[in-house]
Design a protein around this nucleic acid. Structure first.
Lengths: 242, 242
DNA sequence: ATGTTTCTTAACAATTCCTTAATGAACGGC
DNA sequence: GCCGTTCATTAAGGAATTGTTAAGAAACAT
């Protein structure tokens, strides 16, 4: 069973990679397969369409983050398809990358004019294509974390340098421990159940036992002292000011 | 809590912001048109120039907030044009963004030395360009020209000669290694992901695997010692003072 | 051209971190 | 006191990330 299935917004406090959706549009079956195979291997969720009409139908529901679009297609060509896709409100911010045979020299200007973000010439080299797609998503503006510095009493949590300071002593925490402490400290005095913590720090698509939280709590306490995190029996943990 | 939200930069379409003036300089007519069209669609006031001389004439009267400047031009190249533009008193605080063909590899250092704020490789992808311009204007403070000399502890980084000094010993670093160290040292204690580093050092249009960063980190450490660059597992690297 | 340096990738090793499971301790109800 | 529940603590295996090396491309210089 594919556990990745329906979890799009698996972004969480740790900044896990969101899974991106890709729609591939080409009239040649082998190319569809090749691209689908490579994309899925890299962890993208993929749908395919054999012509422009189908592409638009699918785009409306699927709302891909990226459309790979063959320029030369029967019935409706790529540029026209792109224009129509851009008319779908939710598709405004999606990326569109054209696939074009080298010989064609299809007007780049026309392509970019309808809002293409890049174009790639056939024959397609999977590795190169994949790295360019990676680069596309890499450019995405990323969110700014709410507070990069939390200071409570003699404890300082610095998300920029990923370090904490207790009683003027700097300590390096492993990622999960850091995120756990950071998350609790963002809402001082508020109790979170283990499930809450798993959801927010581990993410929705991870299958981890609730007891795992205990172990991390224990390790954080070991490093910063017992005074900051309080156990609320039967409920969960909270960051307590004292 | 899904922290990911839809924070996109749909800034331009509405809102009564001050209208920004843009001067586009390129010797190719189609490119001028493409850029002019897209910029005006986004609400900028645009003027164009086909060569450096004309550019300077226009800049003197028009006083644009942003100059898009092709690096490769007949008669006077972009770098020279930029320097002359910077001599116009009213143009001191304008943004300058270079346009460059991917193949050229025009000296970035030369470009930044004459006061470029960014550079973008052709072929130009209007949507990407527009969002970068939006981002440029959104920045409150104009990027300060980076210091050419950084000194931290017993480490000195000299951007002019591309050399560093550790414990009074001068070392020559290859370009990528130097820029990596330089970039990290500019923001001491700040953790950068491999993606961050790729974007800022390799550029947005280069397709390189993230693990490549590791190898360069390794080489830098080999040369300057293990004490300066710290790994933050699961996150990235940082320059750490200790 | 030729040789040299640098960059990138790939493969494997080393390390750290995460998760689980097992055990013991604390607490409350009966 | 006894029992059951819940949490604390520890250790071990496995998973994930990073370190390291080498080899082929690419860029650069001679």
């Amino acid at each position: 069973m594919d556990l990745r299935g329906n979890f799009e917004q698996n972004a969480n406090a740790m900044g896990n990679k969101p899974m991106h959706k890709v729609l591939v549009v080409d009239d040649e079956e082998p190319i569809l397969e090749l691209l689908k195979y490579n994309l899925e291997k890299d962890g993208y969720e993929v749908k395919t369409a054999a012509d422009g009409m189908r592409a638009i139908e699918i785009a409306r529901k699927f709302i891909p983050d990226l459309v790979l679009l063959d320029i030369m297609m029967p019935k409706m060509d790529g540029v026209e398809t792109c224009r129509l896709i851009r008319e779908i409100p939710e598709m405004q911010k999606a990326f569109v990358v054209f696939l074009t045979a080298r010989s064609e020299e299809y007007s780049e200007v026309a392509a970019f004019d309808v809002g293409a973000d890049d174009y790639i010439t056939k024959p397609i080299k999977p590795r190169a294509l994949m790295s360019r797609i990676t680069a596309l998503f890499r450019r995405e503006t990323k969110k700014v974390s709410p507070a990069s510095l939390i200071s409570i009493g003699d404890l300082t949590i610095d998300r920029v340098s990923y370090t904490i300071k207790v009683r003027n002593k700097e300590i390096n925490l492993p990622k999960k421990e850091f995120e756990l402490l950071y998350f609790l400290a963002q809402n001082p005095n508020k109790v979170f159940s283990r499930e809450d913590l798993l959801q927010n720090i581990w993410g929705t698509d991870v299958y981890v036992l609730a007891r795992t939280v205990d172990v991390h709590i224990r390790k954080v306490r070991e490093k910063i002292g017992e005074d900051y995190i309080t156990t609320v029996k039967g409920v969960g943990y909270k960051f307590s000011l004292s």
